[in-house]
Computed example of a mutant assay.
Amino acid sequence: MLDLLNLLRDALPVLLTGTGWTMTFALASMGGGMVVATLVAGLRLLGPAWLVYLLGLYVSAFRGTPLLVQVFVIYYGLPSVGVQLEPLPAGVLALSLNAGAYLAESLRGAIAGVPPGQWEAAASLGLRRSQALRYIIAPQALRLAVPSLGNTLISLIKDTSLVSVIAVTELMLATKELISTTFQPLPLYLAAAAIYWVLSVGLERVQRTLERRLALPG
């Protein structure tokens, strides 16, 4: 028991450093995903038919293929066409594009959940469709999308473990490196799992608080 406590005490600084990178990685990818999702959702609503079709293919492709494959395509595949990315930006790009596909659908559903009368009211005020979306519909849709956004961020925290395959030192890779020197896989993997769990529980509570505060009247 004492040996186990000593192991965890010695491993804690490395695990916490990996946790910091995991959170940084997840938040950066969430930000990138939101930018992608906002553009995709808006253009699918307002853009020409050919662009709507292409963006639909993007959403379908990234939702229908494993994230690990997407990471490999971006990091190992793009150099074959002259695009070389370092592990960190490659991982953030892969996660951002993957999250963007899911978030775009979440935003589209949230926009559809805004009562049609809001569009009609905006039109009666002389607002163009794009103006109505920006100033009236989008703020309400974002409030409706809070649960989906929170779930996506929680998923991203766990999905960052996949980018350890391209040598990004987040929590999972830090754990693997500790195991390679201590030969104690069970307690270290359990410690990593506990950290992921604590992060997820904390974000779930933040999500519930935001849901209550941002809930639309009625």
Rank of each mutant, 00 (worst) to 15 (best):
G150P: 02
L88V: 15
I166E: 02
P147L: 07
Q131E: 15
A132G: 13
V146G: 04
Q70M: 04
V73W: 14
V146P: 01
S155K: 02
G117T: 09
A61V: 14
A101F: 02
A104P: 00
L67S: 07
R128A: 15
P116E: 15
E86M: 12
L142R: 04
Q84V: 14
A61S: 12
I136H: 04
S164F: 01
Y102F: 15
L133M: 10
S148C: 06
L162A: 10
A104F: 02
V168T: 00
E86P: 00
I111D: 03
L103F: 03
I154F: 06
A99N: 06
V163E: 05
L88R: 08
F72M: 13
S161K: 00
S80M: 12
N98S: 12
I136Q: 09
Y102G: 09
V81Y: 08
I111T: 01
L67H: 01
T65Q: 08
R129Q: 14
Y135N: 10
T65V: 05
L144T: 07
R108I: 03
F72T: 08
G82Y: 08
Q118M: 06
N98A: 12
L93T: 10
V165M: 12
S155I: 04
V83E: 10
L125C: 10
L103R: 03
G82P: 04
L103K: 06
D159A: 13
V71N: 01
R63W: 10
G64E: 11
P116K: 15
Y76D: 08
A132Q: 02
P87M: 07
G113F: 09
W119G: 02
V73N: 06
Y75T: 04
V71I: 15
A101I: 01
G150I: 05
G100W: 00
G117S: 13
I111L: 14
A110C: 07
V81K: 07
R129V: 12
L68D: 10
N151W: 04
A167K: 07
S106E: 12
A101M: 01
G82K: 05
E120L: 06
T169M: 14
R129M: 11
S155T: 13
A110E: 06
S80L: 14
R143S: 10
V165I: 14
S96E: 02
T169Q: 14
T160I: 01
A110S: 05
W119M: 09
T152M: 14
P79S: 10
G150F: 05
I154M: 05
Q131K: 12
A121H: 09
S124A: 15
A145S: 09
L127K: 03
F62D: 00
S106Y: 07
V81T: 11
F72I: 13
V83P: 02
S130Q: 13
I74H: 02
I166P: 01
G77Y: 08
L85I: 08
L153Y: 06
A167H: 11
I111F: 07
G91T: 07
V73I: 14
T65S: 13
A132Y: 01
G100N: 00
V92S: 03
I136F: 04
K158E: 11
Y76H: 09
V165R: 05
T152S: 11
A94G: 04
A167Q: 11
A112Y: 11
E120T: 06
P139E: 14
